[in-house]
Amino acid sequence: MEILLSDLLEQYGYDFTGYSRASLKRRISRLYGLDKALSFAEFRYRINNDHGYFKRFVEQITVNVTEMFRDPSFFKTLRDVVLPKLGTYPFIRIWLAGCSTGEEAYSISIILKELNLLHKSLIYATDLNPTVLEKAAQSMFAMSQMKQYSENYILSGGTKDFSSYYTANYSLAKFDDELKSKIIFSTHNLVSDHSFNEFQLILCRNVLIYFDRDLQHKVLSLFDESLEELGYLALGTKETINFSQITDRYKRLQTEKIWRKVEV
């Protein structure tokens, strides 16, 4: 596996060496089996010489599982506490790092719309993986998921009819274009790319779990550089900033994994 990781870095500039090994190894083994590679040498050759296959490789070894309004209590805090506070600003800039296929971006957009803040907001939704971003930009999700998402939405404090946000089209639900109008989907690699703006809210949920501690330190510093004073940083349910050097400048909101950058 270490050979593959150094190939990816040399050949394509994708650096996975700071990723947690157990998960990465499982993903690579899974793909190896799925694509019925004949040998390691053949697998490696394909990754290095077939650009289409390389894209598939990156897509398959990164985890792109996500849902709308996942962890409803988190989205309730966004709705009730964080976004109303940011609503007092003339303009709201949000960075959703590791947005995958976009379910969270649309969730946030729905809340902003209901709070009447969407018109003055901009959501930068980024991922290292261009393929998932293309999917995200289509604003279409499986109809079979809508029951679950609707339940999550209601638990998160939503009071509208969730189905009013999409049009059913056979097995797909197409979300309203208005929701997408304030989302910019763009590639950004947390491992190698720099800060590109200043934000009042950065969300990066269930991405750091795939990184080792060193890389987590680095990425948290990147978020710190990209966050305005009094801005908010939101992580996944099992993630924390407690071990990192930025922790002194942040105050956690009760119960949820949301920290506010305090004035120094």
């Binding site: 157990a22 998960s23 499982r26 779990i209 795939y210």
Partner: peptide, 21 residues
């Protein structure tokens, strides 16, 4: 193991979590 995450053991005797399928 926390609910809704896979629990993995790393070589350096630490835990890691994974939200894959």
């Amino acid at each position: 193991a926390p609910s809704d995450y896979h629990l993995l053991i790393e070589r350096d005797n630490t835990f890691s979590l994974d939200y894959s399928e």
